[in-house]
């Protein structure tokens, strides 16, 4: 059972490979899109590398759900995530930082949802998978 630190170091190396970022750019709270410049296809690349580096299978939509808010779901209104939507996020993204979701609740713009995709989120997801 790898430690949290061991998982973090491997995730960090994976992101350096996938995103071409420097060692010192990756921190536990780095956001994959806003801070590390990940684009949509990079998420697929990251999943390939995590599967290879950790020897696990990551089913589609488990780590990075593609469409969190289906039309007419009631999860978002006027560009803002509703209370119902926040509840859905806590259910669908159990590996997201609780603090990050609390922060989103204070400014629930839909575009802020992608800020939940942090290095820590990936580490938490793998920790739950591996342990």
């Amino acid at each position: 059972m790898p430690s949290h630190d061991e998982i973090y170091e491997k995730v960090k190396a994976t992101l350096i490979d996938a995103l071409g970022v420097d060692d010192d750019e990756v921190t536990p709270t780095s956001r994959l899109k806003a801070d590390l410049g990940a684009e949509s296809i990079d998420f697929l690349d990251i999943v390939f590398r995590l599967e290879k580096n950790f020897g696990i299978k990551i089913p589609r939509n488990e780590l990075f759900p593609e469409s969190l808010f289906a039309a007419d779901s009631g999860f978002a209104e006027n560009g803002k995530v509703t209370e119902k939507g926040l509840g859905e996020l806590r259910t669908k993204l159990p590996h997201a930082d609780k603090a990050a979701i609390d922060k989103l609740a204070l400014d629930p713009k839909v575009e802020n949802v992608e800020d939940l995709f942090t290095v820590n989120m990936v580490v938490n997801f793998l920790a739950s998978k591996l342990n």
Binding site: L44, F48, E51, K52, R60
Partner: peptide, 10 residues
Amino acid sequence: LIDARDEGGM
């Protein structure tokens, strides 16, 4: 082929 899955491959 390193990986082939529903979303694509590497």
